[in-house]
């Protein structure tokens, strides 16, 4: 019976893809990579660098193991690892990713004297009344009326935006810039579905929220389809 291969090499137009079996032992894998690559370099004459992508399947590689594999492959003069793809994440990594990308949903009215602060993005289902403050490390999305103070990107993120169904703030702050409300607001002016962002001159600008599609494409979080 022929032994199943633990390492399969595929050539693509971007370079090599090394598919590593995830059920064999790590030592076995290392040995086989070494063998396969030594066999291969014999036939390769090109001098320019070839990028290598490792697909490790359901194997978790520690940081040390990653370095070791990279080193092993880099030893072949013209090979360089540029990506290691694994299906496995540690719980820690997963938690960190989740909090970083999380949109915290809060359903309440931020009343005078109250402060709501989150480190990521916030989606508020309710109003911010005058004298109330909403703060976020990321973006602020308000489904109700913003009548108080909103501070987005409060740890220094210039890309952060503030969006409100009804934008009547007493003050908006983004990162380290701020913008008090104009003293005279025309009574009948529609302040619906607007956003606040920092423009090229580092001034806070308030505009229709649709401008964000152009200005802040990173707001789109839809994954897949690529």
């Amino acid at each position: 019976m022929k032994k199943r291969q633990n390492v399969t090499i595929k050539g693509t137009k971007d370079g090599l893809v090394l598919r590593l079996d995830d059920s064999c032992s790590y030592e076995e894998l290392k040995r086989e990579i070494d063998q396969k690559l030594s066999a291969n370099t014999m036939t390769q004459e090109e001098r320019h660098l070839i990028s290598v992508k490792l697909e490790v399947g359901n194997r978790y590689l520690t940081e040390d193991q990653r370095e070791e594999l990279k080193f092993l492959i880099r030893q072949r003069k013209n090979l360089v690892v540029d990506d290691i793809e694994s299906n496995v994440l540690t719980r820690e990594e997963a938690d960190r990713l989740r909090t970083e990308n999380e949109v915290v949903t809060v359903s309440k009215i931020i009343r005078s004297g109250q402060v709501l602060k989150v480190s990521g993005d916030i989606l508020l289902i309710g109003d911010v009344n005058p004298g109330g403050t909403i703060m976020a490390g990321g973006n602020i999305f308000i489904m109700g009326t913003l009548k108080g103070v909103a501070h987005a990107g409060c740890f220094g993120n210039d890309q952060a935006v503030i969006v409100a169904s009804s934008m009547k703030p007493s003050q908006v702050r983004i990162s380290d810039t701020f913008n008090p409300a104009p003293d005279i607001v025309p009574e009948n002016e529609k302040r619906e579905m607007e956003c606040a962002y920092i423009d090229e001159d580092r001034q806070i600008k308030i505009d229709r929220l649709q401008v964000l599609i152009e200005l802040r494409p990173n707001l789109t979080r839809l994954e897949g389809g690529h």
Binding site: R111, S112, G113, Q114, N129, P130, G131, G132
Partner: peptide
């Protein structure tokens, strides 16, 4: 009304 808002926040 502003003070009422504050009090309601505390009462809640």
């Amino acid at each position: 009304v502003r003070d009422a808002d504050r009090i309601i926040g505390l009462l809640e």
